[in-house]
Amino acid sequence: MNSAGIHHKGHQVFFLIMFIFVLAGIFYFSPDKFIPFMNASWSSFSQFLLILPAIILLTGIFSVVVTSDMVRKNFGSETGFLGSIKALLFGSLMSTGPFYMSFPIARSLLDKGAKLSSVMIFVSAWNGIAIVAELVEFHYMGPVFMSIRLILISICILGIGFIANGFFQHNGKK
């Protein structure tokens, strides 16, 4: 999983240590910047802490309730619009682990005979409208921005699925 880059835990710790050294350097040469830096960082971080309990519980709840078995059973059974909606929902709800988990899961769905457009919708929904991220977005950006973007992006993801299906039907499989 080398190409996972910065998302790998060991790499993350390494980058964090490097980053702290850079910060230390900046504040050694301009100590007056330290207070504004802490203010800005804290105001962002405290926002995050406020919804941290919900984030922890929600990621946990969905990884316990929505199992990969459940997703597998529900893929391929429907091929129409309902199937696409299901793919969208499952992508969003399943998206509790790191993003690169979506690729192997999508692969196994394809191997089990799921429709290509559904799989592409699944991957895009996993990354684009993850349920927990939508919660954080609601909290930071407010209901108007969040709901408008959620609706438009959902339509866009369904569109990606349909257009992609056209591409693949023209030129045969994979």
């Binding site: 998302h7 993350q12 946990g60 990884s63 316990v64 509790t96």
Partner: peptide
């Protein structure tokens, strides 16, 4: 109980990256 365990594990996995992002926001704002 398993849900809480998985949730905490997920957050811990992201913590270093999260701290970097928070730091970058601080740098960005100054």
């Amino acid at each position: 109980i398993q849900a809480i365990k998985i949730g905490i594990k997920n957050i811990l996995e992201m913590t270093p990256f999260l701290l970097i992002i928070v730091g970058l926001i601080g740098i960005f704002s100054i």
